[in-house]
């Protein structure tokens, strides 16, 4: 029987919704018994949240001072030790999981399947390659621990209503001291999180400056949306890196994605193709984004955005 251990992502206060999506992915394996592993300085609060996820039977807490920041070098030996006895080890395809999971896999001498988008069997999965231009079905050896990251945009978040047991674990693992956390700059705003927002407003290079992005922020605040950006806009310095959507940025699946002045390079489209509805506004009627947009408007974003905001005013 499949026993899946999911490495939970959190900030000490809140369990990241990516974890709930990993649970849905794991539940796709018939008869899977699902546990969540939490590493941190104090995981009491997030453990309670993890225990409430439907389908989870156990939550394993590993609290120690060195786990205050999620450094892959520190976490990996602990995760590798905790995975003993499990058949599957999952983590989210977020910057946290992408950094950590391959290090764990290598410590255990096993390969990793990156970006699971569909479960066809306990050891058979689909994943995107070539910026999503192809989908490959891969089969792994059932005699080895299966390590994978889960493409969170491909799965709904598992619902609440569970009541898992919570166990504290102390792992006797020596931790390296060669990697140290220095600090972080987070673009925290009152807006919804880009990766989990139901509505996303996004801008491209056509915005032409960081100041001009303000019109998108204003519109986003009116409709309760997160704000994203194309790589071109981020490279040009109009928006910070955490707003980048696409192959090498964030892969998102909102209810509605509204793209202003984004032409629609394949690398960008791969980040939004799971959006329920894609809306595109672009001056160029030939822009490739119109090929995938559910609703398109050829027009000047500097007119459309303020008008849009006015017409939807709260």
């Amino acid at each position: 029987m499949a026993k899946v251990l999911i490495v939970g992502e959190h900030d000490g206060k809140t369990l990241n919704a990516a974890t709930h999506k990993c649970v849905t992915c794991a539940a796709g394996i018939a008869g899977a018994e699902i546990a969540i592993l939490l590493l941190g300085a104090d995981t009491a609060a997030v453990a309670a949240q993890a225990a409430a996820i439907q389908g989870v039977s156990r939550v394993l807490r590993v609290d120690r001072a060195e786990n205050a920041h999620p450094l892959a070098a520190t976490f990996a030996p602990q995760v590798a030790a905790a995975a003993n006895g499990f058949t599957h080890l999952f983590g989210p395809s977020t910057s946290f999981g992408k950094d950590l999971m391959p290090r764990v896999a290598a410590l255990l001498g096993v390969p990793q399947v990156s970006d699971l988008m569909a479960v066809d069997g306990a050891y058979r999965f689909r994943r995107p390659i070539y910026a999503g231009n192809a989908i490959v079905t891969v089969e792994a050896d059932p005699s080895r621990l299966l390590v994978a990251t889960v493409r969170v945009a491909s799965f709904e978040a598992a619902a609440a209503g569970g009541s898992a047991t919570i166990e504290s674990r102390s792992l006797e693992v020596a931790l390296p001291t060669h990697t140290r956390y220095v600090g972080a700059r987070s673009g925290s705003t009152d807006r919804p999180d880009l990766q989990t927002a139901a509505r996303v407003v996004s801008g491209g290079r056509a915005l032409a400056s960081a100041e001009n992005f303000k019109i998108l922020y204003d519109l986003a605040d009116k409709i309760g949306a997160a704000v994203g950006a194309s790589r071109a806009a981020v490279d040009a310095g109009y928006a910070p890196n955490e707003m980048q959507v696409g192959q090498t940025g964030k892969i998102i699946a909102p209810e509605v994605y509204i793209a202003f002045g984004i032409s629609g390079a394949i690398q960008h489209l791969t980040g939004i193709k799971d959006a329920r509805t894609i809306v595109a506004v672009n001056k160029d009627p030939e822009a490739p984004i119109f090929e995938v947009a559910d609703v398109g408007l050829v027009g000047d974003l500097f007119q459309v955005v303020p008008e849009f905001a006015r017409l939807t005013g709260k």
Binding site: P111, A134, T137, V138, G299, F308
Partner: peptide
Amino acid sequence: WLKAVKTEPPAQRQKGIMVKDTAELVDVL
């Protein structure tokens, strides 16, 4: 390590509708 069983093109999104102005866009949404 991982056997590639088959490779397929991704599901294609259908081209949707075009609207004529912002008012119609907001209306549709």
